[in-house]
Amino acid sequence: MSKFISPRTERPILRWTLIAITFAFMAVMLFAPLIIVFFEALRNGAVAAVESLGNPEAAAAIKLTLIVAACAVPLNAVFGVAAAWFITKFDFRGKAFLITLIDLPFSISPVVAGLCIVLTFGSATMVGGWLTDNGYPIVFALPGIILASMFVTFPFVARELIPVMIEQGRAEEEAALTLGASGWRVFFTVTLPNIRWALLYGVLLCNARAMGEFGAVAIVSGKIRGQTATMPITIEMLYQEYLSIAAFSLAAVLALLALVTLLLKTALELRFADQLAATHRA
């Protein structure tokens, strides 16, 4: 008796070959780079790795990266919610164009993004020159780094919320308004509970990218040691000074952040698939 093979799958030998190729491909392309980060960081033992993070330069970089993320991520979250509300609750002309503009940062090289910010707010420009003269330099200072981080992560939250809010429609909000709720009350008691997981998902991706941004920040930061060098910038500086353990230890911290992000993201996708855009974007 010959075994029945479903018309929806391949012969077992082909199937297992493809699975083996997938494992091999991902091991070489994805897992090997991840493992080598920890391997290189721990080359001289865990103590050396942890000690290298304690030096003032690395500590300042970690602090700066946390400050940048703490400013850029909430600002982009507020933007994302406002933009999603504006786009999904109202009908207006030019909506498609507005969405294209919001998506624009995704198709622009981070280096070009950094260049744009230097050309807008650099000390040689009108706006930047005036601000610098009055004691508020943007480029080669914290505000420029925050702006660059915001630019590259700008669409994350809005992109996550817009499809979810389109799907949920306006009926619930309209019902709440009819019952006499105020605008803010409608937002906090009706809309926000509906979009909270999608919001968290967007914030998670936004945060990972903001903390790890290199190209745009490299241009606007000026790479001043201990002052405008974020974690990725400090990794580059340490690496080029052949301080391998220190560079890879700092890289390992960011790699751990990436792993935690992936873990939380996967958990959200499994638990709240119906409330996220990513899992049914199709």
Binding site: F86, F92, L98, A113, L177, V186
Partner: peptide, 29 residues
Amino acid sequence: LVHRSPIPGLGISAGITLTMLSIVVILPI
């Protein structure tokens, strides 16, 4: 330009969206 809607928050959401979009994306580009 904008259809009338019973839902509030047009001014604030449009204001935040367009202001931030201008500062972060449109002005630099």
